[in-house]
Amino acid sequence: MSVRRGFQVASIGLIAGLVLSACGEPPAESDNEDKGGDALKACMVLDVGGVDDKSFNEASWAGLQEAKKENSNIDISYVSSSSQTDYEPNLNAEVNKGCEVVISVGGLMADATKKVAGQHPDTHFAEVDAPSSGKNVYGMQFNTAQPAFQAGYLAAAMSKTGKVGTFGGEAIPPVTIFMDGYYEGVQYFNEQNDENVKVIGWNVDKQKGGTFTNSFTDKGKGKSIAQSFLKQDVDMIHPPSGGAGLGAGAAIQESGGDAKMIWYDTDGCVSAKEYCDFMLTSVTKHMTKAVKDYTLKAAKGSPPTGDYVGTLENGGVGLAPFHESEDDVPDDVKSDLEQIEKDIIAGKIELKSPSQPKAG
């Protein structure tokens, strides 16, 4: 099956400017030019996978580092979690060492964050990939179903075999939201172009099924799943599974074939550049900027409250550049992606993913 070409639309800029706006009280950027500012002790509790997971841990920690670059009086530190049983002890330890702001990373930490924050009402908390759970907890969520929809359309358009695949780390909303959008984007491509590209590994209408590594660190499991996909003639793989997803890159690299990977959370050609040659694009959520802006405002004495939801409209999510694949993507497919973005923002395309965070 040859590369498919979609409907024609006028060319516009591919991705809107990456300026975050929030639902609820927004984080504000600092304009300090002297790298100084009010002091703040800001601490982070990472999920399993470590600070160099090429995904949400790494991107979130980068936000604290960026905040410190702008305000050198912000004291930053992090602690890693080896398992889910570490969440609550780690959060309590950060409070006990005098952290004024504690940022937890990952939706799996939501219950522990809610409990510890409730026990320490004078400490400000924020959580990446979970909604606010109290007056002193700021929620940072990202509607990645939107750019994943574009990614699914792109994968279907670029597939030569008519089979694309996706697998996740665990069956939790911050993961399945990627898979939902990807699946829906493929179906939209089929509808618009009278095609029948198949999705292996997920169906948005069957939330209890799907293919998962059940780990965010097991690269070997990710590689094994990707290899099974390749044996089924899948030539586009979207693996939102933390560090386990790196296994897909290894499998594609070893196969010597034409398969491509669509990364997630961060721009894979930056965070996992060893596999850039095999990446078509990445579905990104701009956690670094969200964490940075939250921290800078907290240092000014006004930690944001309520919820932030990153969307295509406010630049909180998007597709990364095509990098090495830039010349491979036909202009009309790029135009289709541009139009899809406009239509999602305008509400002309409605996604049905049940994992989409609610605004406000």
Rank of each mutant, 00 (worst) to 15 (best):
residue 3 V to W: 10
residue 5 R to F: 11
residue 8 Q to L: 14
residue 8 Q to N: 13
residue 8 Q to T: 14
residue 9 V to Y: 15
residue 12 I to P: 07
residue 19 V to Y: 09
residue 22 A to S: 13
residue 24 G to C: 05
residue 31 D to P: 01
residue 35 K to H: 15
residue 36 G to Y: 08
residue 37 G to W: 09
residue 37 G to K: 13
residue 38 D to V: 02
residue 41 K to W: 09
residue 46 L to G: 03
residue 48 V to P: 05
residue 50 G to N: 07
residue 50 G to V: 08
residue 51 V to F: 01
residue 53 D to E: 04
residue 59 A to D: 01
residue 61 W to R: 10
residue 62 A to K: 10
residue 65 Q to E: 14
residue 66 E to F: 01
residue 67 A to K: 05
residue 78 Y to N: 11
residue 79 V to E: 12
residue 85 T to C: 00
residue 86 D to I: 07
residue 86 D to R: 11
residue 89 P to A: 13
residue 91 L to A: 12
residue 94 E to Q: 15
residue 94 E to G: 04
residue 95 V to K: 09
residue 97 K to F: 09
residue 97 K to D: 14
residue 97 K to M: 14
residue 101 V to F: 05
residue 101 V to G: 03
residue 101 V to H: 02
residue 104 S to H: 08
residue 107 G to N: 06
residue 107 G to M: 05
residue 112 A to D: 14
residue 113 T to V: 15
residue 115 K to S: 11
residue 115 K to R: 15
residue 118 G to M: 12
residue 125 F to W: 15
residue 128 V to G: 05
residue 128 V to Y: 10
residue 135 K to F: 09
residue 137 V to L: 07
residue 138 Y to Q: 02
residue 146 Q to R: 06
residue 146 Q to E: 15
residue 148 A to N: 11
residue 151 A to L: 06
residue 152 G to W: 03
residue 155 A to P: 09
residue 169 G to E: 07
residue 173 P to V: 08
residue 174 P to F: 07
residue 180 D to C: 12
residue 181 G to S: 06
residue 182 Y to G: 01
residue 183 Y to P: 01
residue 183 Y to A: 07
residue 187 Q to C: 04
residue 189 F to R: 02
residue 193 N to D: 06
residue 194 D to I: 00
residue 198 K to N: 00
residue 201 G to T: 02
residue 202 W to F: 13
residue 204 V to I: 06
residue 210 G to M: 01
residue 213 T to I: 08
residue 213 T to M: 03
residue 214 N to R: 04
residue 215 S to P: 07
residue 216 F to H: 03
residue 220 G to L: 13
residue 222 G to N: 11
residue 223 K to N: 13
residue 232 Q to S: 14
residue 235 D to G: 03
residue 237 I to C: 03
residue 238 H to S: 10
residue 239 P to I: 06
residue 244 A to G: 03
residue 244 A to S: 15
residue 247 G to I: 05
residue 250 A to K: 12
residue 251 A to W: 04
residue 252 I to Y: 11
residue 255 S to T: 12
residue 256 G to D: 14
residue 258 D to W: 07
residue 259 A to K: 01
residue 262 I to P: 05
residue 264 Y to E: 09
residue 265 D to A: 08
residue 265 D to P: 00
residue 266 T to C: 10
residue 270 V to W: 00
residue 279 M to S: 11
residue 284 T to P: 00
residue 286 H to E: 13
residue 287 M to F: 06
residue 289 K to P: 00
residue 289 K to A: 12
residue 290 A to C: 12
residue 292 K to V: 05
residue 306 G to Q: 06
residue 306 G to W: 10
residue 306 G to N: 12
residue 309 V to K: 02
residue 310 G to S: 09
residue 312 L to T: 05
residue 319 L to W: 03
residue 324 E to V: 08
residue 329 V to S: 04
residue 331 D to P: 01
residue 332 D to Q: 10
residue 333 V to K: 00
residue 335 S to H: 03
residue 337 L to H: 02
residue 347 G to S: 09
